[in-house]
C-alpha cells in the first residue's frame, strides 16, 4: 500500500506516515494545547487555509484536523527563493480527557484555528474536601 508522508513545515523533515488520501504533501500544523478548567483548547496554525476548507472530526476519542490548502502560485511558477512548501495540513490527536463531542466548537482567524473541546460534566475537576479527624 502506498503511503503519504507528513512533513514538518519548518524543517522539511518527515514526522510520520499516514494513510494516503491525496498525492500532495501534507504538513503537520504547529499546535498549542491548553487545558482550561472547563475545556481543552487546541490552537493550530494552518496559514493559507480558508475556513470552509477545514475539516474537524472527533470520533471515539480521536480528534482529526484536516485543512485543504489551495495553490497560491501560478502554475509552473519559477521560484527565486523557496524556503517552505505549500500543501494541506493534517494532524490527529488522541484525546485522553472525557469531552462532550456535541459541544465542540471552532473559530478561525488569520490562519489560526482555535478548537474548543468542552469537558464532559463528569470529567470536570471537583474539589474534594478532606475532613480532618
Amino acid at each position: 500500500m502506498e503511503t503519504t508522508t507528513a512533513v514538518d513545515k519548518r524543517t522539511g523533515r518527515e514526522v510520520g506516515t499516514q494513510e494516503p488520501t491525496r498525492t500532495m504533501p501534507r504538513y503537520r500544523p504547529l499546535v498549542d494545547i491548553e487545558e482550561h478548567a472547563d475545556e481543552l483548547r487546541v490552537i493550530a496554525e494552518v496559514p493559507g487555509a480558508k475556513a470552509e476548507d477545514i475539516d474537524i472530526n472527533y470520533e471515539q476519542g480521536i480528534l482529526t484536523l484536516h485543512a485543504r490548502v489551495r495553490p497560491r502560485q501560478p502554475e509552473n511558477v519559477n521560484y527565486l527563493i523557496r524556503e517552505y512548501g505549500i500543501g494541506d495540513y493534517y494532524r490527529a490527536f488522541e484525546v485522553s480527557e472525557t469531552i462532550d463531542p456535541s459541544r465542540i466548537s471552532a473559530d478561525y482567524t488569520d490562519g489560526v484555528l482555535v478548537l474548543h473541546l468542552p469537558k464532559a460534566e463528569k470529567a470536570k475537576a471537583r474539589k474534594v474536601e478532606v475532613k480532618a479527624r
Binding site: 496554525e45 523557496r82 517552505y84 490562519g111
Partner: peptide
Amino acid sequence: GTYPAVNVWEEDDVLRAEAEVPGL
C-alpha cells in the same frame, strides 16, 4: 531557521514574496 520563511517568485514585471505569519 529564520522566521518567517520566505518564498519569492517572479511574475512578469513584479516579484512576489510570500511568508506565513499566522495569528499576526
